[in-house]
Design a binder for these strands. Structure first.
Length: 490
RNA sequence: CGGGGUGUAGCGUAGCCCGGUAUCGCGUCUGCUUUGGGAGCAGAAGGUCGUAGGUUCAAAUCCUGCCACCCCGACCA
C-alpha cells in the first residue's frame, strides 16, 4: 500500500517497481515481459511524443509507417545487424489456427508459411529494402523519415519501462548522398535528444560515442546520451547511429550522382523509447512518489477544493473553476479534483504520489481572504498566495520547478563523475559510490570486456569533445590518450 | 538460460514443517457522522489457496510438471 512505502534507500529496485504500479503508470500484462501502459503513464508518453515529434518536424523529418513483420530473408542481408538481434527475435511461422477433434484451438499445420516472418526488433531491414525502390538519383535524396512504432525484443529479464519485450519507440531512418551529410544528421539528432532530455525530462545527459564493442549492430558509429539515476547507475537514454553504407550495400541501394556515377547511399538511424519513462521516474522521484517536470506532467496543477457544508462546497467550487479557467487561458493544464468520495488529505497524498508539480488548495478561509494555498511537489514548500494574479504566480513557479528539478539532477550527476587513476580506486569507487567514473582505457575490446567481467562496469561512452590527455589504462597500464566514462548501467 | 526465493480475496499477509475446507489488516459495498494532510462507528460482500496432474477417505498443506513474479548472474534500448 501507498502508506507503507519502500524507500529508495531500502531497496531501490523495489521502490521503482512499486512506484510504477502505485502511481498508475503501468502494470505487467498477461504475456511474459510485456506491459500494459495505463492512462496516466500513457499521458506522459504522449507528452514526450508530441514534443519529440515537433522537434523532428522542425528539422525537416516526416512520419511514415512500415510493417511489423519482416521476411526473414530481408533480415539476413545485413549480417551484423541480423547477428546482433538473432537471439531475441520472435518469429511468425503460421497464418492460421483451427479447432481440433478435442475442440482445442491449435496451430493449423497446413498453414505453415513458406518464409518465416520476424517481428521487427528494429526496422532498418524493411525500410532499406523499401528505399531501394525509392532512390535512383541524387534528386531523391535526402530521405528524412521517422516512424512511431512498437518493436519486440525477446529479453531474458524485463523491468517495466526499462526493458520490456515489446516497447514503444520512434525510429528515424534517413538516407543521404554523402557521408558528411549523414554524419551531420547523426549528430543533429543526438543534439535534439540531449536538448529534449534536459529541457523536458529535466535529466542532464552526457553526449558521447560508444566503443566498438557497444556500437549498434550494423552501424559504423553509435552516438548516445547517457543519464545518471539516483542510485548511481547509468541509463542509456537514446542513440543515434551513423550507418555508413552498410545497409545500402546489404539492400543494394544506389543512386546516380550529378556526375552520373553510381554510388551507395549513406544512412542514419536514431531512436528513443518508452525507456525514457524509466529515466523520468528514476531521476527525480522521491519516497513520496513521482516528481514530474512541469513540461511533461499531464496535469501541471491540481486544484483540491476543501469544504464542509453544501454552501461552502458551492462557493469553493465556483472559485476553483474560475481559477482553472484563468490558468488554462495561460496554457497551463489544470485538473480540478472535485471528487466527493475522498477527503482533501487523501487527495493531497494521491496527487503527490502521481507527481503533479503544483497543487492549489482552496477552502472557505481562502474565499474570505481571496487567497489559495500553493504547494510545490519538488520541494514540498507551501505558501499562501493571492487569487488575483494567480496565473502569473503559477507560471513563475512552474518554470522554477522545471529548472530546479534539472539543477538538482545536474548537481547530483556532476558530483557523481569521479576521476580515477588506479585500479584499486576504480573498484572502491564503483563499490562504495557508483556513478560515472572518468578513467583511462587502452582502447582495446579485450580490456573493456575484462573490466566488465571483473566489476560489471561498462564504458558508457567516450564523451564528445573529450579533452585529449596522456595517461595509463586503469587496468593494463598501457598508454591511453583520453579518459572514458565507466559506470554500472541499466 | 543458470543459481536462489515467492505465488493464499483488489492489495499485503497467517496457516504449510506435523493433511481434516482458510487468519488478520488495508481496500470495496450499505448507512449515519465527517471533510485545511491518507476520517470514525455499525453492518455486509468478496477465495476453483498461480496452474495441470499425482498420492490420499480427505490436499493451501505431501510429490511432479508447467506458468508468473522478485533477487543474483549471462544478454540488452
Amino acid at each position: 500500500m501507498a502508506f507503507e512505502k519502500v524507500k529508495r534507500s531500502d531497496n531501490y529496485s523495489e521502490w521503482y517497481n512499486n512506484l510504477v504500479k502505485d502511481a498508475d503508470l503501468a502494470e505487467h500484462a498477461a504475456v511474459k515481459g510485456c506491459m500494459i501502459i495505463k492512462p496516466y503513464g500513457y499521458a506522459i508518453w504522449e507528452k514526450m511524443q508530441q514534443q519529440l515529434d515537433k522537434m523532428f518536424k522542425e528539422t525537416g523529418h516526416s512520419n511514415a509507417y512500415f510493417p511489423l513483420l519482416i521476411p526473414k530473408s530481408f533480415f539476413e542481408k545485413e549480417e551484423k545487424n541480423a547477428a546482433g538481434f538473432a537471439k531475441e527475435c520472435a518469429v511468425v511461422t503460421h497464418y492460421r489456427l483451427k479447432v481440433d477433434e478435442n475442440r482445442k484451438i491449435i496451430v493449423d499445420p497446413e498453414a505453415k508459411l513458406e518464409e518465416e516472418l520476424i517481428i521487427r526488433p528494429t526496422s532498418e531491414a524493411i525500410i532499406w529494402n523499401t528505399y531501394r525502390s525509392w532512390i535512383q538519383s541524387y534528386r531523391d535524396l535526402p530521405i528524412l523519415l521517422n516512424q512511431w512504432a512498437n518493436v519486440m525484443r525477446w529479453e531474458m529479464r524485463t523491468r517495466l519501462f526499462l526493458r520490456t519485450s515489446e516497447f514503444l519507440w520512434q525510429e528515424g531512418h534517413t538516407a543521404h548522398a554523402t557521408s558528411e551529410e549523414a554524419l551531420i544528421e547523426t549528430k543533429q539528432m543526438l543534439d535534439i535528444y540531449a536538448e529534449f532530455a534536459e529541457t523536458f525530462l529535466g535529466v542532464p545527459v552526457v553526449k558521447g560515442v560508444k566503443t566498438p564493442n557497444e556500437t549498434f549492430a550494423g552501424a559504423i558509429e553509435t552516438y548516445c546520451i547517457e543519464g545518471l539515476m539516483q542510485d548511481g547507475k547509468a541509463l542509456q537514454m537514446g542513440t543515434s547511429h551513423f550507418l555508413g553504407q552498410n545497409f545500402a550495400k546489404a539492400f543494394d541501394v544506389k543512386f546516380q550522382t550529378k556526375e552520373g556515377k553510381l554510388e551507395y547511399v549513406w544512412a542514419t538511424s536514431w531512436g528513443v523509447s518508452t525507456r525514457l519513462m524509466g529515466a523520468l521516474i528514476m531521476a527525480h522521484s522521491d519516497d513520496e512518489g513521482l516528481v514530474l517536470p512541469p513540461n511533461l506532467a499531464p496535469h501541471q496543477i491540481v486544484i483540491v477544493p476543501i469544504y464542509r457544508t453544501d454552501e461552502e462546497k458551492e462557493n469553493v467550487e465556483t472559485a476553483a473553476k474560475e481559477i482553472k479557467k484563468k490558468l488554462e487561458a495561460n496554457n497551463i493544464s489544470v485538473k480540478l479534483d472535485n471528487r466527493d468520495t475522498h477527503k482533501p488529505g487523501f487527495k493531497f497524498a494521491e496527487w503527490e504520489l502521481k507527481g503533479v508539480p503544483l497543487r492549489i488548495g482552496i477552502g472557505p478561509r481562502d474565499i474570505q481572504n481571496g487567497t489559495v494555498e500553493l504547494a510545490r511537489r519538488d520541494t514540498k514548500e507551501k505558501s499562501i498566495t493571492s487569487i488575483d494574479g494567480i496565473e502569473n504566480t503559477a507560471k513563475v513557479l512552474l518554470n522554477d520547478i522545471q529548472t530546479s528539478i534539472f539543477n538538482r539532477a545536474k548537481v547530483f550527476r556532476d558530483n557523481n563523475i569521479r576521476e580515477v587513476n588506479t585500479w584499486e580506486e576504480f573498484q572502491k569507487v564503483l563499490e562504495e559510490k557508483a556513478g560515472f567514473i572518468s578513467a583511462h582505457w587502452d582502447g582495446t575490446d579485450i580490456t573493456e570486456e575484462k573490466i566488465k567481467q571483473l566489476t560489471k562496469a561498462t564504458i558508457r561512452c567516450i564523451p564528445i569533445n573529450n579533452p585529449q590527455e596522456e595517461g595509463k589504462c586503469i587496468l593494463t597500464g598501457n598508454p591511453s590518450k583520453q579518459r572514458v566514462l565507466f559506470a554500472k548501467a541499466y
